[in-house]
Computed example of a mutant assay.
Amino acid sequence: MSYETKIAIPILQKNKEDILKIAEDYIKKGADLLELRIDSIANSNPKMVKSIIEEINFPTIATNRSPLEGGYFKGNEKDRIAILQNCVDIAEFIDIELQTELKYITPIIDSGVKTIISFHDFEKTPPIDDLMQIIEEEKNIGDIAKIAVMPKDLEDTIIVLAILSRYENTIAISMGEIGSYTRVMASKFNSPITFATGGDVTAPGQIDIETMKLMLNMNIIDHDELVNTI
């Protein structure tokens, strides 16, 4: 592997049997990380989720996405965080939203698990100054900062690249078809993680892992040259 950026593939299955089956498939396809979307699991609870991650036995991002940021978890906030807290000793990373109340974030941070503090905007790409403030807040809390925003034009995607050029240990994604290339270019800025799909592309902008691995291994443009253009 000639790139350092790890490829994570989200798993959004509803039951344990399907999760374990698809996890095995994604590992065989070359995923570096699996993102277990806990919010997609039917009737999830702390014990069940922990057992799933244990059986997967592969570096996993535990994510229990809030409905306010595009997730599907139907329980209350206390229950949502309780599931994540129960994963701190077995997950590679815990993804928790920046907007989560500090009283819920603190116990996860204090556990010592590596964290991804995330922010999503499915309607627009905020101005770069606003995004920089968000990144700064995320970095003050956890290990890796993450933003995923929706572009309205190509210029919006350049804002995302500018964020990547200014911050280390940062995941910055421009969503949709226009922004799909930012998932690949992330490696040119030494972003720690990018996201691909394990099979069928289900939304604009997604890239399957085979294509992602191929593109990440292509020296399309020199990193220093790219940074100097932004």
Rank of each mutant, 00 (worst) to 15 (best):
M1H: 10
S2C: 12
S2H: 08
S2M: 12
T5V: 12
K6S: 11
L12A: 15
K14A: 15
N15G: 02
K16H: 00
K16T: 03
E17A: 05
I19G: 00
L20Q: 05
L20S: 02
E24W: 04
Y26L: 03
K29I: 00
K29S: 10
L34H: 01
R37S: 01
R37Y: 07
R37H: 06
I38K: 06
D39G: 07
D39F: 02
P46G: 11
M48F: 08
V49G: 12
S51P: 00
S51H: 01
I53Q: 08
E54P: 00
E55K: 10
F58T: 00
A62N: 01
R65Y: 06
S66H: 03
L68I: 11
E69T: 12
E69D: 12
Y72R: 10
Y72G: 01
G75I: 07
K78Q: 15
I83V: 11
Q85N: 15
N86T: 03
V88F: 04
I90T: 12
A91D: 03
F93P: 15
I96N: 00
L98A: 05
L98P: 12
E101L: 10
K103I: 04
T106P: 04
T106S: 11
I108R: 07
D110M: 13
S111H: 01
G112I: 01
G112H: 11
V113C: 10
I116G: 09
S118C: 09
E123I: 03
E123H: 12
D129C: 02
E137I: 11
E138D: 06
E138M: 14
K139Q: 13
N140R: 14
I141F: 07
G142V: 08
G142K: 04
A148T: 02
P151L: 09
P151G: 08
D156V: 08
I158N: 13
L161A: 04
A162G: 14
I163P: 00
N169R: 15
N169G: 06
I171C: 08
A172N: 07
G176P: 07
A186L: 03
A186M: 12
F189W: 05
F189E: 04
F189A: 03
P192D: 13
I193C: 07
I193A: 08
T194C: 05
T194G: 11
G198Q: 13
A203D: 15
A203W: 08
P204T: 12
I207Y: 01
I207L: 09
D208Q: 13
M212G: 02
K213V: 04
N219G: 09
I220Q: 09
I220G: 06
D222H: 13
D224Y: 05
E225S: 13
T229M: 13
T229R: 10
